[in-house]
Amino acid sequence: MKPAAGLRRSSVVFALIGALALMLALEVAHAAWRAPAEARRIAASAGLVRSLGLTDLALFTEARYARHPALADLHSAFQDNPMSFEHFPSGSFVPLPHALPASALGFSADEVSR
């Protein structure tokens, strides 16, 4: 990296860092500039969710429990074969339901005491 005549090394590098910082600033400005259009688009999607009664994102379409993780059977990943843990790749992205409700298994403290 031989600097051009009359230019100090630091000037070149500072200019490069300045250019990168400017690009980052432009990206922030771009995000801000896109925000109203994106808000309209998201509102339209939300309207579609409301009028169709949707519950999930169409992100993983390969298995039904990945397509609708919020509504999936509680043990759906294991139901095809007792020894099969998970064979769809997206299964590694879709975690367990947030809490397996105790009452759904029939062993809640209330039920036992009753």
Binding site: I42, A58, L59, F60, T61, S90
Partner: peptide, 29 residues
């Protein structure tokens, strides 16, 4: 992420799905 629609992540997320949504995310930092 916002220019190419996270092109490097898409194959991982797509898995065996035939339909993978062609979506663009709202840019935000």
């Amino acid at each position: 992420v916002f220019g190419t629609g996270a092109a490097l992540f898409a194959p991982v997320l797509k898995g065996w799905s035939v339909i993978y949504p062609d979506f663009r995310l709202a840019p935000q930092i």
